[in-house]
Amino acid sequence: MAHHHGQATAILDDDIRTVTITGPGGMTARLTNHGARLMSLTVPDRDGHPTDVVLGKDDPHEYVADDTLMGAIVGRNANRIQGARFAIAGREYRLAANEGTNSNHSQPNGYEHRNWTVAAADESSVEFALDSPDMDQGFPGRFRVTARYELISGGLALGIRGMSDSTTVANLTTHTYWNLNGEDGGDVLGHRLRIPAERYHPTDERFVPLPQPAASVDGTPMDFRDTAVIGERLHDGERHGDRQTALARGYNHAFPTEGTGLRLMAEATGERSGIRMAMYADAPTVLLYTAGFLDDVPGKQGHRYGPSAGLCLEPGFVPNAVNRTDCTRPVLPAGTEYRLDVLYRFE
């Protein structure tokens, strides 16, 4: 504990730090520079009881061995790139194939296991910074990125900014697993969910979206245009032999959103806590992942996280969009600013 920023930052000997920030209305967040992660977010439930709605670890060092991206900022490219290769301006770049023949989440050397710098911290906000060198993970350009978390009235704001000296791929996301009944609240299948999207991207068995255009959600388990209980939608899918939800053991699907600027991407409610979270972002899609592949993952206070213990709402680009012509591509021209803004509102 060599040094403090306004009492917020605890610096540990090995440069893994935690920062605690507080906001109006009894909200508290704990973060670590290891992966610029959200470790916990405590909000009052319908009875005013403080409830930590984020899956995670008690000790930031425990994230070093974590391969589930809990709470992390993912980059340089979130989700899948088919064939672990892409081209920019006619030049092909190759990435590590860490999931079959594909690249997923720019692993094994992802941003989630870098110690970001604590660039600034005060009572209600913290900003982490990372300097990602040219050809880091196989991507061109030196990419300097910041992730700023701030507790504001009624919610949490996350702003990611980046710039590269060469044209590159920039598709970052936040990979927080939410359980609005509390991180030890069992599965999220009873959560009510709304995603105001008319279409979704069906995937192959490796969760790469199929090359065809996005499909209508109408008459499928992907229809969350009106609020629906996640488990009931999945049971409908099982009854009709839905291949998509069977492959994903739930959901691992991108929902394109219409419009520009900060807009509602998803709204989820914990059926027991009464906590409702609305997520706004300015990304082309939100990827819904219901954590079907979590397998007895150690969590806080001796809790274990199994399948569907949380849900991820990942704002960003359509997976593999860099290799598509029918989607917005996550290509960032040299010298232009990458921006992703995310706002979580709680009621």
Rank of each mutant, 00 (worst) to 15 (best):
I275P: 01
S132Q: 14
Q244C: 03
Y344H: 15
R144W: 00
T68I: 08
A120I: 00
P209A: 08
N181P: 11
K300E: 09
N104I: 15
P298G: 03
D223E: 11
D122A: 07
T42Q: 08
A96C: 08
G90M: 09
T257H: 14
R46V: 03
R85N: 13
L311R: 02
H240T: 15
G162Q: 09
T260R: 12
G138E: 02
S132V: 14
Y149Q: 07
R324M: 09
N79A: 03
G306Y: 01
V54L: 07
E267G: 04
R324G: 06
L12W: 13
V145M: 12
A119S: 09
S132M: 11
E205C: 07
D295S: 07
R94T: 13
A97L: 07
T260W: 00
T173E: 04
L311M: 14
N171I: 03
F86D: 06
G310L: 06
P140L: 12
N79M: 10
E238W: 14
H240K: 13
M163S: 15
V118P: 02
P50V: 00
R272C: 07
A197R: 06
D341K: 04
R339G: 00
H105T: 09
F255W: 09
E267H: 03
N179M: 06
R276I: 04
A283R: 02
D122S: 05
L151D: 03
A2S: 15
A197L: 05
V43T: 09
T220P: 03
A119P: 02
T22D: 07
V286T: 10
H240Y: 08
G292R: 04
I16F: 06
M27Y: 01
R142T: 14
Y280L: 15
P133R: 02
D67A: 14
A97S: 13
L234M: 15
T28S: 06
P24R: 01
G75P: 04
M222K: 11
R263A: 05
V126I: 13
D66R: 05
V217S: 04
L158Q: 10
D218T: 14
D204L: 06
A248R: 07
